[in-house]
Design a protein around this nucleic acid. Structure first.
Lengths: 214, 214
DNA sequence: CAGCATCCGCTTTGATACTG
DNA sequence: CAGTATCAAAGCGGATGCTG
């Protein structure tokens, strides 16, 4: 991209990561960790393959991404964030926070990846560690099940299922997210295809307060 | 801009403010407050006039900017941020924070506006209100002098000069910023055209800690 | 198959000129 | 002052093909 040519740190940041797809590419590496070229393509539906290659080169030159030839078990190269690249996390978070009200609307054509859930979960859920009640919720929305796990005051997400989850939520991503953040009532959502099985309190334990999504 | 078509709040935020110039336009309105079309052009050197008009329309439609016909004293329309637009401030701040290391380099062709100083000042300076020493520093870099004022635990900036400033800093923006953030020593900087007159302690009072700019 | 490069049509941007 | 109009250049999206 052509530089803005301004001696301003915002403009200079945008000179580096302001290109189309650049910040979403960083989002993918933040959410997924070291990824293969093909993984990145799957997480960036709609990107032209040559553009992905070009962005990776540019971000590599800017010191944000590194390309490593993984050790023998893996036959392919892996792309990762450098420490400098990981420092973009607050930028992604604030953008994501600002974008939350926009999540109230969606269309059937919109793409969704289940691990994108991890950002809103980190932003909006918290665990009251004083309760000392470890909690696991399985979320079935998108292409693979995800687990939200809370213990010792920390909340984490990862792909997977659990035999002894406290609760299982499933349905369209919009409804699942709405119920998770508290913008939507589980009963209302049920009428549109949302399901909640298990312990209702499990969810309440993760919600410090109700948030408006719209 | 064409939508990313993803059900992700980061992607949806970028659908709205990810266009070229959009976030810099928000920066201008954050830093300058309600502005005329011409003010915005001056603060966005390099933007094509048709693009500025187009971005203003788009951001107006998105509920980020409002156009108001100002009361009689002012003959022209003013553009302002809506509350929703002001909520972009954390996004701008995090981008600006991430971009600070990039400020170590500059070229003579780069444009600079003195009020752009207010962002780094808000980010990096603080005032120990326990000291109860009100402090004023005049900064002469760019097209107009600026005042950095600290009192009652708050730091503010505004254009202007002061008869009784505790100190006056002047020189190229890069050196002034370097000394302000503590990345540069006033003595080193002096060799390259930086000047500091007045009370050295005035600056120290505003610097909670030294920060690396490079 | 993973990781690109090339080509082509379309959209966005930049520069300049012009207008109420 | 506050834009619109025009046009060339750059960027992007999609398809395809090449290489280990």
């Amino acid at each position: 991209m052509r530089s803005y040519g301004q001696y301003c740190s915002v403009a200079k940041a945008l000179d580096v990561v302001g290109d189309r797809w650049s910040l979403l590419l960083v989002r993918e590496l933040l959410a997924q960790g070291p990824s293969r070229y093909t993984d990145l393509r799957r997480g960036l539906p709609g990107i032209a393959t040559n553009l992905l290659a070009q962005r990776l080169r540019e971000l590599e030159q800017a010191g944000i991404v590194t390309r490593e030839h993984a050790p023998p078990p893996i036959a392919t190269a892996l792309f990762s964030l450098t420490p400098r690249g990981e420092q973009l996390k607050p930028v992604i978070e604030e953008l994501g926070r600002w974008g939350i009200p926009l999540m109230a609307e969606t269309t059937p054509q919109e793409e969704y990846r289940s691990y994108w859930l991890s950002l809103p979960v980190e932003l909006f859920l918290a665990h009251d560690s004083s309760q000392h009640v470890a909690t696991t919720i399985e979320v079935r929305a998108g292409e693979q099940p995800m687990l939200i796990e809370a213990r010792d005051g920390a909340i984490t997400t990862r792909p997977g299922t659990s035999e002894h989850a406290d609760a299982v939520m499933s349905g369209p991503p919009q409804l699942v997210l709405g119920v998770l953040t508290g913008a939507l009532d589980a009963e209302e959502a049920a009428a549109e295809g949302f399901r909640f099985d298990g312990d209702r309190d499990a969810l309440e334990r993760l919600r410090p307060q109700r948030l408006a999504i719209s």
